[in-house]
Design a protein around this nucleic acid. Sequence first.
DNA 1: CGTAGCGCCTGCCGGC
DNA 2: TGCCGGCAGGCGCTAC
Length: 273
Amino acid sequence: MPELPEVETTVRGIKPHLVSKVISHIKVRQEQLRWPIETKILKQKLSAQVIKAVTRRAKYILIHVSTGTLVIHLGMSGTLKIVAANTPILKHDHFDVVMLSGQILRFNDPRRFGAVLFIEDDLDLHPRFQHLGPEPLSKTFTAKSLYEKSRKHRLPIKSFIMNAKVVVGVGNIYASESLFSANIHPLHPAHALPLEAYKKLHAAIQAILKAAIKKGGTTLKDFYQSDGKPGYFSQELQVYDRAGMSCFCCNTAIEAIRIGQRSSYYCPVCQKL
DNA sequence: CGTAGCGCCTGCCGGC
DNA sequence: TGCCGGCAGGCGCTAC
């Protein structure tokens, strides 16, 4: 379940194996992902290209070459791994970028919610990227801007911070965790929270994402192995998936509710804001 | 415009 | 034992 820390960990893991490498060819085994893979275009635009950089925007992994950008989204269940030539194909191995060296960047995604696309134009102008909000760990993401955006939104604060136009990279798990840390009830209407609450929330989002990325970083070596499980789940989640269990802070039973079709968890005593 | 709800897809788990 | 329903969830789409 890749959230932003797992995507960032993936980028850091694969980057050293890709930058400055020459692409030999690509291999597509399953075109039907979130959007159909345009195999012909990918083959044309990526063959013989040198990888210039590997970066991330929101939860999109960006592999830059001179003809454009290969964009990979892990969706719900996707993983990217660097594997050696001749590594056996596993179920759901949908897409390979094969390097001249023989090393392969391999995309596996059981649920096929992920995406692989090629964008030739400036990414910031592309419809998929132009409306994205600030990166949560950048200076453009501030408590004040978050507060100001919230004034015209009456929806629950949890749904508000999960909106990619507001801030990118806050998925279901970290939305619950951030709100717990900031002592904010997940159903509180966004526009009704004061600036002080947004200061706490902003700080919580940054601290929790940073901590999770730091944890993920400890398993970077796994990206060159067969089991590429990033370790961010080992981070101690305070409320997520802990319905009925004791709050680590006050011992009250954690409650589970549905907000916008998403499972949500909170402590009814600690989160009164 | 903001908001709510749906669907994509497979694997897993609990209940019968 | 095997089947089936429900859930997991990022994100774009549609409808109001």
